[in-house]
Design a protein around this nucleic acid. Sequence first.
DNA 1: AATAATATTTAGGCATACCTAAAAATATTT
DNA 2: AAATATTTTTAGGTATGCCTAAATATTATT
Lengths: 219, 219
Amino acid sequence: MSFTRSEENYLKAIYHLADHGVSKVSTNAIATRMRTKASSVTDMIKKLSDKNLVIYQKYQGVNLTEVGQEVAVKIIRKHRLWEVFLVEKLNFGWDEVHDIAEQLEHIESEKLVDRLDEFLEFPSHDPHGDPIPDKQGEFKPSQKVVLSDVEPGSICFCVGVIDSSSKFLRYLDKNGINLGTQLKVVSKEDFDKSMKIKTKGNTMVISYKISNNLFVIVN
Amino acid sequence: MSFTRSEENYLKAIYHLADHGVSKVSTNAIATRMRTKASSVTDMIKKLSDKNLVIYQKYQGVNLTEVGQEVAVKIIRKHRLWEVFLVEKLNFGWDEVHDIAEQLEHIESEKLVDRLDEFLEFPSHDPHGDPIPDKQGEFKPSQKVVLSDVEPGSICFCVGVIDSSSKFLRYLDKNGINLGTQLKVVSKEDFDKSMKIKTKGNTMVISYKISNNLFVIVN
DNA sequence: AATAATATTTAGGCATACCTAAAAATATTT
DNA sequence: AAATATTTTTAGGTATGCCTAAATATTATT
Ligand SMILES: [Mn+2]
Ligand SMILES: [Mn+2]
Ligand SMILES: [Mn+2]
Ligand SMILES: [Mn+2]
């Protein structure tokens, strides 16, 4: 079984939206995530349903089948392994690798994936702290934590945001916090959970609303 | 400027068929090489012509323009760099890498290509002895030579054939010569240019017709 | 130079993967 | 429970990249 690039991208999107297959994924949610129109999603969903990759009832959204899930996990494995390769071997910044991995994840060759995995010494997580499924599709837990959970004294670096509104992103930018920025948690205020952090050459206090919207990996 | 996978494959095929842009490439030649139909080639040729990548006169075949040539060379550069990566870093046999490189050559990212080049320490030739154009598109001479030109005493290994008829391939197979086979040239007979060669555990005499149809790289 | 053979193009279709606009179903207000 | 708003599907259309069959141009043969 082999799938088109588009089919693979849909399966991956549905996988990410499904959050462990609990709830059904709506047409609109997929359309938004993939930056296409709902009608295009309906078209593709029908095709995926015919191929038994999703379970679909008109107007009720979709869920991945077992097979659909396996396909999605394989793509994610490839995506994250290539990200590790780009960062570890080719010295890319880990904020530059996503778009390239988005292409590389569709290269078809099981042997290539396995050899790459070996070459990279079987990494458990990608540069963004996300777990890399092994050949059997098993995941380790994520390495990402929310900054508000980090203990004072710890050094960590920023790998992602929860709220990705441009307001929040502008706030971060203004304060010199970017993906990749290293931070030291100096102290936490019990009363309002505000946090004193130290970046390269700058110390500042951030509110809980901020620290609770930032993903970091603790060093 | 960015091109579809199909456009890129056509440009590469025309480049290889054009042999330094001397003669015009016929529709049928392209169709055969790409395993499609002549009518499909005509369709694509028109599109490439509209984009000024080829010069086309109805019924007269095509040639690449300067721009078309540049695009083709970039694809070839990527193809061959990835082949080196697969063989040198991932321990693929150099007879297994072509199909994977055929996919990888279409990954779009100039930075990726340059970093890969650097990571591989700027290789001048791919595993098949074919030269890898540098960033400026300049080629070194090929490393491939015809076996019949190899001096007695030299050790070389087989990287390709000129005549690829199944008759010839069956002959080679029967005599234990495959892509990758290492050979030592024991002696050459002046009279009929026949050659005594030694493979791993086998010594045999081959005619000039054979040795003149085998590409090798001398060690 | 006419005829036959071959090569190439055109015409008309098909599948994929998108799109817009309209219709239908579902969800939310009142 | 209606009315309204939102979501989803359907209908019909476009571009790409293929295909077969038929028409046309070029080349080789007589
Ligand atoms: Mn993708
Ligand atoms: Mn990642
Ligand atoms: Mn290709
Ligand atoms: Mn090669």
